[in-house]
């Protein structure tokens, strides 16, 4: 059985194959960990709180949540000593899911407060353009550009819950290639990215009811499979 089939099969069964995968949730004081922890536990993960680099050693996947502005978040992250370990994690193409601010921090910088961010994805975080109302709060369609195991089993027109005023804008060929999904609020913005096992969503899967839980179950399955291998044959997955 291919890793992909196993990953997607596991997510539809609700529990990843081979016991509970250990998912680390980065706790840097810039977000509510309660809901993401409860949602990951609900889809069968063993949730570990990651506060310092030592906490990373036996987790299989990493979730970086976060709300608020980039500057304070980067300062808090800096104090945990997790910036370099996170870079190493991504460089090793290990399963990583950034949520909301956790996605925005992957880019080079943020227009929100001029903060320099991790620079793991080419591009910047910019304010939503021509938005009828800001913040962009509510359920909106996530339109996928391509199939990906993260969205396995989720209807193409599914709505997810958003709460934000800024979004990452990938730049250059590499950035463009990482775009997984877009959403329209005024203009279109990038609502999901994927580059290998580096994944990010601008919406809140932990607050997006059934489809959100399914997405998290898919991430847990990807993490259980060791990340990179889960995308060997994406065409095998129906999204």
């Amino acid at each position: 059985m291919s890793p992909v089939a196993r990953a997607s099969g596991a997510s539809s069964a609700g529990r990843p194959v081979g016991g509970a995968p250990r998912i680390g949730v980065v706790d840097y004081g810039a977000g509510n960990l309660v809901s993401i922890g409860q949602a990951l536990a609900r889809v069968g993960a063993e949730v570990r709180r990651v506060r310092r680099s030592d906490d990373l050693h036996d987790v299989q996947g990493l979730v970086v949540p976060g709300v608020g502005a980039a500057g304070p978040a980067m300062r808090r992250l800096g104090r945990t000593g997790l910036v370099e370990p996170l870079r190493d994690w991504v460089a090793a193409d290990r399963p990583f899911l950034g949520i909301c601010l956790g996605l925005q921090l992957l880019f080079e910088g943020s227009d929100e407060d001029g903060a320099e961010t991790l620079g793991l994805l080419a591009g910047r975080t910019v304010m939503l353009e021509s938005a009828p109302r800001l913040p962009h709060i509510g359920w909106n369609q996530v339109e996928r550009r391509r199939a990906h195991p993260l969205f396995a089993g989720i209807a193409p027109a599914a709505d997810f819950y958003f709460v934000h005023s800024y979004a990452g804008r990938p730049a250059g060929t590499e950035g463009e290639a990482a775009i997984l999904a877009e959403t329209e609020h005024g203009r279109r913005f990038v609502s999901a990215v994927a580059r290998g096992a580096l994944l990010g969503v601008q919406f809140h899967p932990e607050r997006s009811a059934g489809d959100g839980l399914r997405l998290l179950a898919n991430f847990v399955a990807i993490a259980a499979e060791g990340g990179g291998r889960a995308r060997v044959r994406p065409e095998a997955v129906s999204c």
């Binding site: 997510s11 529990r15 889809v43 069968g44 089993g153 059934g210 839980l213 399914r214 179950a217």
Partner: peptide, 13 residues
């Protein structure tokens, strides 16, 4: 409007 769906929506058994 968002289509009503079960909380689990098949994601969890």
């Amino acid at each position: 409007v968002r289509a009503a769906g079960a909380i689990g929506a098949g994601a969890v058994a």
